[in-house]
Nucleic acid binder design. Structure first.
Lengths: 101, 101
DNA sequence: ACCGTTGTTCGACTTTCGTCGAACAAGCTC
DNA sequence: GAGCTTGTTCGACGAAAGTCGAACAACGGT
């Protein structure tokens, strides 16, 4: 399986912002921001696995996450260092924002 | 004319991000970031005035801009101080991003 | 009062997006 | 290999967003 993980500098800012402008994806990012790798299936999102797969794809193709395949599972992690370097303050601003349901 | 200009803290982060996640609106924000007030009609956007009006409304209702009415013109300005206070780094990160396209 | 300017609002249309069930692919275990 | 688990892909659907022309409203000037 070929995973499309673009260079962050090749992704339009608007695509990065659009990826973050969704409640479900923001919840995923918040979870990932705790650090480390997370298995796709362990997110508590209240959506179908098809939709979860879709959102994770959006995040990955926006350059926000990286995915490692191991067996039947996929381990996702936030590309925090790269994000902080290219968009300093962005992630922090989004993550420290109040979690209005 | 009643202008809807919400308190920034009452706007969901996702709405702020969504407002910024559009090329036309980002161009408007970049122009406004130069400082001062700008008359609606002076933006060079290559779109119809109906569409321009729509985008300015989105920005205003996302808490990003403030509009002052004077005669038949409207003067728009960026709510930079409030934005920097509530989302430190966000605007800078977006504005310093390469202007691809 | 008339006309031009400025900007909003109203359909209408097209495209994009979020969502799901079903089918599929790949791996693990027995 | 059979069966289970994990996750993606494929339509399909409804909702939302971007776009426009046309109509409208408000103001200013002559």
């Amino acid at each position: 399986m070929e995973l499309h993980e673009p260079e962050l500098r090749d992704v339009p800012v608007t695509a990065v912002l659009a990826a973050l402008a969704d409640d479900v994806r923001l919840q995923i990012v918040r979870t990932l921001a705790a650090g480390g790798e997370h298995v796709c299936g362990t997110f508590e999102l209240g959506i179908s696995k098809a939709t979860r797969s879709h959102h994770l794809k959006v995040l990955r193709e926006a350059g926000l996450t990286r995915t490692r395949i191991a067996g039947t599972s996929r381990y996702v992690r936030l590309r925090r260092d790269e994000l902080d370097r290219l968009y300093p303050g962005l992630l922090d601003a989004v993550l420290t924002a109040p979690t209005r349901s």
